[in-house]
Amino acid sequence: MTQNITSVADRAITGLDRIAPATTITKIGRGVALAGVVLPLLLIGLLKFTQIEVDALKPLITNTPWLSWLYPAFGEAGATALLGTAEIFTAVLLIASPWSARAGLLGGAIGSLTFLTTVSVMFALPIWYAELGGFPWINPVGQFLLKDVSLLGVSIVIFGESLTRAKAQISQAV
Score class of each variant (00 low, 15 high):
Leu113Trp: 09
Leu82Met: 02
Leu151Gln: 11
Ala77Ser: 14
Ala73Met: 11
Asn4Leu: 15
Ser120Gln: 12
Pro59Glu: 01
Ile13Asn: 14
Thr85Ile: 12
Met122Lys: 06
Tyr129Glu: 14
Leu47Cys: 05
Asp148Ser: 05
Gly160Met: 09
Ala81Glu: 03
Thr26Asn: 08
Thr6Ala: 15
Thr24Pro: 00
Glu53Cys: 08
Ala12Met: 12
Gln172Cys: 00
Pro40Arg: 10
Gln51Asp: 15
Glu76Met: 02
Thr24Gly: 09
Thr50Gln: 00
Ser97Met: 02
Pro40Thr: 05
Phe49Gln: 07
Thr64Trp: 08
Val38Ser: 02
Phe49Asn: 05
Pro21His: 11
Ala56Thr: 08
Asp17Ile: 04
Phe74Trp: 05
Val38Arg: 00
Ile110Val: 13
Trp99His: 03
Ile13Thr: 14
Gln143Phe: 09
Leu151His: 12
Ala9Asn: 14
Gly108Asp: 05
Asp55Pro: 04
Ala86Met: 10
Leu106Gly: 04
Gly36Tyr: 05
Thr64Ala: 13
Leu39Cys: 09
Trp137Gln: 11
Phe49Pro: 04
Phe89Gln: 05
Gly104Tyr: 04
Ile61Arg: 06
Leu151Ala: 11
Ala96Thr: 04
Leu125Arg: 15
Met122His: 07
Gln143Trp: 10
Ala130Tyr: 08
Ala101Phe: 02
Arg30Gly: 10
Ile95Trp: 00
Thr24Ile: 11
Ile95Glu: 01
Leu163Ala: 03
Ser68Lys: 06
Gln3Trp: 10
Ser171Ala: 15
Gly153Ser: 08
Ile28Ser: 03
Ser100Val: 08
Ser97Asn: 06
Ala103Arg: 03
Phe159Val: 10
Gly133His: 01
Ala33Arg: 02
Val54Gln: 14
Phe123Pro: 04
Ile138Tyr: 02
Leu146Met: 11
Ile61Asn: 00
Gln172Glu: 09
Leu145Gln: 11
Leu46Met: 13
Leu93Phe: 11
Val92Thr: 10
Phe115Tyr: 06
Trp99Cys: 02
Leu145Pro: 02
Val54Trp: 11
Thr85Pro: 00
Ser150Phe: 13
Ile5Phe: 12
Tyr71Gln: 00
Ile95Asp: 09
Leu152Met: 09
Val38Ile: 05
Leu94Met: 09
Asp17Leu: 03
Ile28Val: 13
Asn4Ala: 14
Ile127Glu: 07
Gly160Asp: 11
Leu16Pro: 07
Val37Thr: 12
Thr90Asp: 02
Val121Ser: 01
Ser112Ala: 13
Asp10Asn: 15
Val92Phe: 04
Gly108Gln: 00
Ile5Ala: 12
Ser68Asn: 12
Ser120Arg: 10
Leu151Trp: 12
Leu47Tyr: 06
Ile61Leu: 03
Gly15Leu: 01
Val141Ile: 15
Leu57Lys: 10
Pro40Gln: 05
Thr14Lys: 12
Leu70His: 07
Thr6Leu: 15
Thr85Trp: 07
Ala79Gly: 11
Ala109Ser: 12
Thr6Arg: 14
Ile25His: 10
Trp128Met: 15
